[in-house]
Design a protein around this nucleic acid. Structure first.
Length: 299
RNA sequence: GCCGAGGUAGCUCAGUCGGUAGAGCAGUAGACUGAAAAUCUACGUGUCCCCAGUUCGAUUCUGGGCCUCGGCA
């Protein structure tokens, strides 16, 4: 059976470094599972592996679209499966590396994502409707698909609208499922004491600023990428963008970038749970490379 | 030194016409199937600067002290 090694965990723990090391040693290739590193021109703020690092081992799904192009879970999943089977067919070992829980599990668990592409106009319409009567939308979902309605918070308009969008064709709750992929996965989780992790990402953010992050955002805006784009709503890009528009000081923007990253880390731990037995957790402070190599060698 | 403003949650501040207090942010937990670094939900915490007085009762009123920030010297 084909194999795959996943490396997961919160931002800033050292996934990139470890992946490079293991992939080099075990004839591997890296498949990115970070929802922001797929965008071109967004390098500093996404902590994307450098060109030099990317040259050490083949990388997939990095820099694949422009910041104003549509992207989604379904697209990601298709591309990831393609990359994985391609790597395996060449006799090499794929390393799925990234902190986007939704993407990682969609690949590892084989989610059946409803084949209903986003309908922008439909969404816009309902969003408008929701502004004065959100409950009406929820009631409609309740009529079309009571099972889904029970699981979705009426106040989470975005999810209500997506469920309605799918349910026009088939009840949302029946359109989802899982079909485990045909490869065996070993999942390595990297973790670190929370306070220390916060401290490290704070330092990393200060470094980003020193290394020209503000210019990176300025350049993106100059290229016409509006702050309302999903890509530009990424942590840091949003705040620095607002600073560039004169809406806050640089100091405030950096502070918000840091606390936003802390919140993000907490959310990542909701996707990658320390008590999830499928994940082999290692504390970066104390783990030895040999232990991790064992996991790759023997699964 | 004098005049003014203020000292309440980790931070910024609101408030109590005297009955021991509350928002935002931060923090913590949860949801998540074509926007996911998005979106949504839930939850702490307090010698109300200190001392004395008045009062059944003071964070609130009175007096004194300490500290901070403005202005004048």
């Amino acid at each position: 059976m084909n194999k795959l090694v996943a490396i997961v965990g919160p931002t800033g723990v050292g996934k990139t470094r470890l992946a490079l090391r293991l992939a080099q040693k075990y004839n591997g290739e890296i498949v990115n599972a970070d929802s922001r590193q797929i965008y071109r021109f967004m390098d500093i703020g996404t902590a994307k592996p450098t060109k030099e690092e990317q040259a050490l081992v083949p990388h997939h799904l990095i820099d694949i679209i422009n910041p104003d192009e549509d992207f989604s879970l379904a697209t990601y999943q298709q591309l990831a499966y393609k990359a994985i089977s391609d790597i395996q067919s060449r006799g090499k070992l794929p390393f799925l590396v990234g902190g986007t829980g939704q993407y990682v599990w969609a690949v590892l668990e084989g989610w059946l994502v409803p084949k209903v592409p986003p309908d922008i106009e439909f969404r816009r319409n309902l969003e408008q409707k929701a502004e004065d009567n959100a409950d009406e939308l929820y009631q409609e979902l309740n009529r079309l698909d009571p099972v889904a309605a029970r699981k979705i918070d009426p106040r989470n308009i975005r999810r209500v609208i997506r469920a309605l969008e799918v349910s026009r064709q088939k009840p949302f709750s029946q359109a989802v499922g899982k079909a485990p992929p045909s490869f065996a996965s070993s999942i390595i989780g990297l973790t670190m004491e929370r306070k220390e992790l916060y401290r490290r990402v704070d330092v990393r953010i200060d470094e980003m600023i020193r290394h020209g992050f503000v210019d990176e955002v300025k350049k993106l805006i100059g290229m016409g990428y509006n702050l309302t784009l999903p890509a530009m709503s990424s942590i840091g890009y949003r705040e620095i963008g607002q600073y560039l528009q004169g809406k806050m000081t640089l100091e405030e923007a950096v502070y918000k970038m840091k606390t936003g990253t802390h919140r993000f880390i907490r959310h990542q731990y909701a996707w990658f749970r320390l008590k999830d037995e499928r994940i082999r957790w290692f504390d970066t402070a104390s783990v030895s490379v040999e232990e991790l190599e064992e996991v790759v060698k023997h699964g």
